[in-house]
């Protein structure tokens, strides 16, 4: 365990080494959130009734919730893995007595801690600047459900990201394209990172609810906002756990095949 703690520490330090980049990256996050915030603010300024099951308070909480959940779920250093594989750097890890997944998960956690810290600060700052109404969940069981679904989301994202990174084993020069398509585009929309999914017709939403992306941001936030009943909450947790197992299984298979391919090529 000690060595992973060292990895954690070093990760934090190296993030600080690029602090200027980091701060600008956070700045960009805030801007992105502000764009969405002002949009919804003006959608709801004309009317007081709920739309799509959101009132003004809940939709604005959704927007800020996305800022926090992004930093918990989507902050990651493991995006570099694709590059490690295609550049041949992976070899340095394969010969070390270190769990590769555990290593990157630790680095992810360091990144998440840092980003979470900053996003909390940003929210506090924005809260004082624009004084949005924020919905606070008080039901104990719901909060527990939220935390569970959030933990599942973290692991799910790690698995999805690593699966996408594995493309590098077979197409090293196209790894970035796969990352772009899956992480930047598809994941953003299907996870509710840009718009809450329930804006769409309910038939589409229920279709999406069988995809793993749904459980990264959208579902945990729905739970937090109290928009799902206990039964639906348990159903969602069950489906996401199922996905977790499926992806875990796939990843371990794909990774083994990938490493074999990698060694065969002698990169």
């Amino acid at each position: 365990m000690h060595k992973y703690f060292q990895v954690f520490k070093l990760s934090l330090i190296s993030e600080f080494a690029y602090r200027f980049n980091f701060i600008l990256w956070r700045f960009r996050n805030v801007i992105q959130i502000l764009v969405v915030f002002f949009f919804w603010n003006s959608v709801f300024s004309g009317q007081n009734e709920a739309v799509f099951g959101y009132n003004r308070e809940k939709i604005l909480t959704y927007v800020f919730g996305i800022l926090v959940l992004r930093s918990i779920v989507l902050s990651s250093r493991a995006v570099d893995v694709a590059g490690e594989i295609s550049s041949g750097n992976l070899t340095n890890f394969l010969i070390k007595p270190l769990g590769y997944f555990r290593y990157w998960f630790t680095r992810d956690v360091a990144s998440k801690v840092l980003n979470l810290g900053f996003s909390v600060l940003e929210i506090a700052l924005l809260y004082f600047l624009i004084k949005p109404p924020i919905y606070v969940q008080s039901d104990f069981l719901t909060i527990v459900g939220f935390l569970i679904s959030l933990s599942i989301a973290v692991v799910l994202f790690f698995l999805v990201l690593f699966l996408v990174n594995s493309v590098s084993f077979w197409m090293p020069e196209n790894a970035w394209a796969a990352q772009f398509l899956f992480i930047v585009i598809i994941l953003e929309f299907f996870s509710g990172g840009i718009f809450p999914l329930d804006v769409l017709p309910s038939s589409l939403v229920s279709l999406f609810s069988y995809l793993p992306f749904y459980y990264l941001l959208f579902f945990p936030l729905q739970v937090y906002l109290g928009k799902v009943s206990y039964i639906l909450m348990f159903k969602g947790i069950f489906i996401s756990l199922l996905w977790l197992l499926i992806l875990w299984f796939c990843l371990s298979k794909v990774w083994k095949m990938g490493v074999r391919e990698y060694s065969a090529e002698g990169r």
């Binding site: 197409m171 020069e173 196209n174 970035w176 394209a177 796969a178 772009f180 398509l181 930047v184 585009i185 598809i186 929309f189």
Partner: peptide
């Protein structure tokens, strides 16, 4: 980089 080209194109259209 045809593959990347197609992927970028699809991504942009999808978005």
């Amino acid at each position: 980089r045809r593959f990347g080209f197609v992927v970028f194109f699809l991504g942009k259209m999808f978005r």
